Simulated assay, not measured.
Amino acid sequence: MIGLLIVDDHPVVRDGLRGMFAADDRFTVLGEAGNGREALTVARAVNPDVVLLDLRMPVMDGVTTIRELKASGSAARVLVLTTYDTDSDVLPAIKAGATGYLLKDTPREELFRAVLSAHRGESVLSPAVAGRLMGELRSPAKEPLSQRELEVLTLIARGCTNRETAGRLFISEATVKTHLLHAYAKLGVRDRASAVATAFERGLLGRE
Rank of each mutant, 00 (worst) to 15 (best):
T82R: 01
G62I: 07
K142I: 15
H119N: 12
A96H: 09
V50H: 06
K95Y: 11
L52C: 03
T83S: 13
D61A: 12
V80I: 11
V90P: 04
R148S: 09
R132Y: 09
R132K: 13
R113E: 09
P92N: 12
D89G: 03
L102C: 07
D85I: 03
R138Y: 14
V78I: 13
V124D: 01
V124L: 01
R77L: 00
P127M: 08
L111M: 04
D85L: 01
V129W: 01
V50I: 05
P127R: 07
I66M: 12
E109N: 11
M60W: 13
Y101W: 08
L79C: 06
S117D: 08
Y84C: 02
G135N: 14
T83L: 12
E109L: 09
D54F: 11
L111K: 01
L81S: 00
M134C: 10
S74L: 10
M57W: 13
G135Y: 11
R113M: 02
L79A: 06
R113A: 08
V59S: 12
E68C: 13
A118V: 00
S139A: 15
A71W: 04
T82Q: 02
S74V: 10
V124W: 03
M60P: 13
V90T: 10
A76G: 11
V51I: 13
R120P: 00
E149R: 06
Q147M: 09
L145W: 05
H119V: 00
L103Q: 04
L69V: 08
P140H: 13
L102H: 04
P107V: 02
Y84K: 02
E122H: 05
A130R: 10
T65K: 03
R148G: 07
V129A: 01
L91I: 15
P92W: 11
R67Y: 14
L69H: 08
P58D: 14
